[in-house]
Design a protein around this nucleic acid. Structure first.
Lengths: 118, 118
DNA sequence: GTATCATTTCTATACTTCACGAAATATAGG
DNA sequence: CCTATATTTCGTGAAGTATAGAAATGATAC
């Protein structure tokens, strides 16, 4: 997959309200500090698919729609999903986010001291 | 439109290869320096719709599909389109880009000196 | 092995989007 | 006003996407 296709895939994946919500949740709750509070090693990694479902839908049941969205986010390279025992835990892929920021934040050419694309 | 909806709309608009190409083109060619080279004031602003069509499709004809994509980018707030005489000139909206970068680049909470969401 | 839990895949349906050509609109110039 | 130019809107068909329920898969526990 070339760079443009990769960027398109990532933007497309984030261009859905449900997926953006999932992405936001994963960014906010994959805090490594949690391990010091309750000793739960899983908290280092991230929430399970079930926890994502619970957060996004409000219901306490597995949702095939969420599974589908997680797959899209994963195929776009924005998150990783890894098995831990009975559960699948989700994490954001920081490298992909850096790619996005680099693309969006890159400035236009500078000529004669005048910044282009202002 | 709330913040999430606005972000979603922008990501969605960029999540199409044709629109990303248009967006890239607008970022690269709206250079204010051009006015010193040929005196063409229009160059300060940005390319016309026709020039965008020419660049994106390669053909020298107006394309309704490009017009449609420009509308999507405009509705998402990523670009502005403004009439200048017979032409409509296009510009990227730097403010929207800043919004996107701020969203993507924002870090997770920091607790006890440990950066979350690594 | 059997039961159970967690998650994915399959299938169907409703909906949205892309692309293209034709028609409509808006502006400038004579 | 008439014509040319520039661009948008409309209509259509093909393709893609979101959602939900049912069935299937994979892993653990007994």
């Amino acid at each position: 997959m070339n760079e443009t296709a990769s960027l398109t895939a990532m933007f497309k994946a984030l261009g859905d309200p449900t997926r953006l919500l999932i992405f936001d949740f994963l960014r906010s709750c994959c805090c490594p500090v949690a391990v010091y509070d309750n000793g739960d090693v899983r908290q280092i990694i991230g929430p399970t698919v079930g926890e994502v479902c619970c957060h996004v839908t409000g219901a306490d049941q597995i949702n095939s729609t969420i599974s589908h969205h997680l797959k899209e986010l994963r195929l776009a390279g924005l998150i990783t999903v890894e098995r831990r025992g009975k559960n699948m835990v989700c994490r954001v892929n920081r490298e992909a986010m850096t790619t996005l920021v680099s693309y969006l934040a890159k400035d236009g050419m500078e000529v004669d001291g005048i910044q282009c694309c202002q």
